[in-house]
Design a protein around this nucleic acid. Structure first.
Lengths: 202, 202
DNA sequence: ACCTGAACACCGTTCAAGT
DNA sequence: ACCTGAACACCGTTCAAGT
């Protein structure tokens, strides 16, 4: 029953990736199995191993797609003053997480060591934040703006994870958004004034 | 080969829990299987289902133990002024996460709906923070201190997760601690001054 | 060369049967 | 009453064999 040349290897790879993404979106990462994918695309389980080395490899590529989409949405945000831009980035992050809950959750399931090309995607997102912090306090060192960006962004992420996995006793998305804005605005205020007070001492 | 009355059901339950915790500590949650536990305690797989309804139930109780230990360590911290106390709580949280990495990571693997008794354990920890925020700005509403506590604590948690799962490009634990302190101190400063400025307006 | 079928070594869970 | 043994319905992964 071997169906020769019906699809190229590249086509099969795309079909596998598409089917897998659909399963994750609709049912969550825990429901993703080789057998489900095979059924969906009309090939046998073994054929999936022709185009991905294993499930971890496939998962990595689904995550990469999600990261790319997220980055794109953050980059498409209208520009404004850094104080507001940072808050808007945080808001957009929450919005993406809510809209793509299952795929977003999957990003943070650690299965293996992160490859370098994936690590770069993470740094790309942090870079967007760092740039804003650099604008916010033009005199500060890159070390300082980098640390501030990582602190706040991780913080925003923490609120998203805990609230979206139902661990904060928070009612609706509006309250989650308020919490994020509260963290962002107060951190920014505190950070800017701490940088300024160092200047004044000099 | 049935070994009657060698252990009471309570004893078996304790043995299962102990063995399971040891496996999680040494190998991580993903390595925890019924068969491994059964092997370890010298009973068959089926006997585990006499004392726990299923693996999710067992996991829930391991998590509960971890939560209790964490709460205890946070409560045992020496008392000091709220600004510092909050930072010390955050530091202690990181310390616990590092020392109990596998068990701590397990807490945030969502398998099922959280039961009410477990939810209360989460709120207990948040309560410690809320109390400090209430002390910090005695005039603020409980709603305000609650929101602030949740914002900052989730933020601290976010830094812990991302750094300990190797997603922040952060070198050592010292830098993680610095990031946490940076978030906490600047958020507290920003928050206190925002509360004060409202008073001045009145 | 492309793809399959069937096996292998695992899972969690259940339950009739043994002592 | 306590516990087992064996089955059931799943996993991911591999590879000799078929076209």
């Amino acid at each position: 029953m071997a169906r020769r040349n019906k699809h190229s290897l590249e086509e099969i790879r795309e079909m596998v990736l598409d089917a897998a993404e659909t399963i994750v979106i609709n049912e969550g990462y825990s429901e993703l199995t080789v057998r489900k994918i095979a059924m969906e695309i009309g090939y046998t389980v073994a054929s999936i191993y022709m185009v991905f080395t294993n499930m971890a490899d496939l998962a990595m590529h689904i995550k990469a797609n999600t990261m790319d989409e997220l980055t794109e949405q953050l980059q498409q945000l209208p520009r404004c003053a850094p104080e507001r831009q940072i808050v808007e980035l945080a808001r957009a992050y929450l919005k993406f997480a809510v809209k793509n809950l299952n795929r977003w959750n999957m990003i943070f399931v650690q299965d293996t060591e992160l490859p370098e090309w994936y690590r770069q995607k993470i740094n790309l997102i942090f870079g967007l934040l760092e740039a804003q912090f650099a604008l916010l306090a033009p005199g500060c060192s890159t070390q300082q703006s980098k640390l501030a960006a990582r602190a706040l962004w991780s913080g925003v992420h923490g609120i998203c994870t805990l609230s979206l996995t139902d661990k904060l006793d928070i009612a609706g998305i509006d309250e989650v958004e308020n919490t994020i804005v509260l963290l962002a605005e107060n951190f920014i205020n505190g950070w800017v004034s701490s940088i300024l007070s160092v200047y004044q001492q000099q």
